[in-house]
Amino acid sequence: MTTGDRHPPHHKTLTCYVDYRCRLPLCVDRYNTWCRDRDRAIADGTWQPLLDAEPIRLHLLELHAAGITIHRVSQLTGLPYRSVRSFTQHDYSNAAPRRHRVTREVAAKILAINLADHTPGNVNPIGSQRRFQALVAIGWPTVYTAIRAEIHPSNRNSMFRYPTMHARVAQRLANAYDEMRHQAPAKHGVSATSIKRAKLRAEREHWAPPSYWDEVGGIDDPEFEPQYGITRRQIIAQDANWIMRTAGLNRQATAERLGISKAYIDHAFRDHPEYAIEVAA
């Protein structure tokens, strides 16, 4: 996706309010509605958000034995890969134990997957692409990742061109990522020159390292737009462009909605003219 197509992150869920401190009126209303519904359920005695996760674990193991990988489950349910994986194994990145509790909504989505209705199939490659890039950001040339994931080195760039990827390949890449992100490239035969070249490439392309994805999540979410390496002024330019196009506001009204000055938007548009507009038609 090009920079010109970038959209503000997650203006459709609670994520933008909670994680990005977004205060657009619709996002504030969405969060307040969720809080009211939760408080009402608690008062009525119907708030039971967590269930035993053991049936989920057993179901995922059954699916995996039949060739339905974690990546395939993630695609079918729309749940983050790491969230699904956490039911069958602990999280190596932060030493979190395997999940033993689950919300009713998540449980329903996973248990709804019937082996008779699905085949291993293909998944969106965005998560695998981001894992490749994250390993480059910490000094791993892509050829090493390809070899570890049992992909022929000459085919390692094809994953950036095709709209889908076989779920088994995506699973092998995820496994390689989980191992390599905790290993130093220099201790596995990668030269200092190759490490430096990989890191420079990632910096130039704004490829986020694993630590970024640990913090924000969404590595497998094609709707999530990472803001790694992007300045606050560029983010303001993106948000202002989005508000002006969708709401038809001028710069002054947009500035008031974002809680900043019109001059800040003017400077942001000057520095990032690809977003600059006056009023949406």
Rank of each mutant, 00 (worst) to 15 (best):
H152A: 15
V136A: 10
A184Y: 05
P125Q: 01
P185E: 02
V136N: 11
A112E: 03
L173Y: 14
R156L: 06
N175G: 14
N155G: 09
N124M: 04
T103D: 05
R131F: 07
A184V: 02
H166C: 10
A186C: 06
Y144G: 00
Q171M: 14
V123Q: 06
R104L: 09
I113R: 06
I110M: 03
P153N: 03
N175R: 14
R98I: 10
Q129N: 06
H182D: 12
V123L: 13
V102W: 10
H166E: 08
V136F: 07
N124W: 12
T145C: 11
A146D: 00
I126F: 15
G127S: 05
R156T: 02
V102Y: 09
R131C: 01
A96G: 09
I138C: 08
E179I: 14
M159V: 13
A116G: 14
A167L: 01
V102A: 04
V123Y: 03
A149Q: 09
K109P: 00
Y144T: 01
G121M: 02
I110F: 04
P153R: 08
I138G: 01
W140A: 13
M180F: 07
P125I: 01
M159L: 11
R101S: 08
Y144Q: 07
E105S: 13
A170Y: 02
T119D: 12
A176C: 07
R161D: 00
V143F: 04
R172M: 12
A146E: 03
V102M: 04
T119G: 07
F132E: 02
E105C: 09
Y162Q: 15
R104Y: 09
H182I: 07
P125A: 01
G139M: 09
H118P: 02
P120D: 04
R131I: 02
I113F: 09
E150A: 14
V106I: 12
V106Q: 06
P120M: 13
N114R: 11
R168H: 13
A107M: 10
A116S: 14
R168A: 11
H152W: 14
L111N: 02
P125G: 04
I113D: 00
H100M: 15
S154Q: 15
W140C: 05
A186K: 10
A167G: 05
P163M: 00
I147P: 04
E150L: 10
R130H: 07
Q183M: 15
N114F: 05
Q183S: 13
A96W: 08
A186P: 06
A176S: 15
Q183R: 15
V136K: 04
A137L: 00
N124C: 11
I110G: 06
M165H: 03
L111T: 03
T142D: 08
A174S: 08
A184D: 14
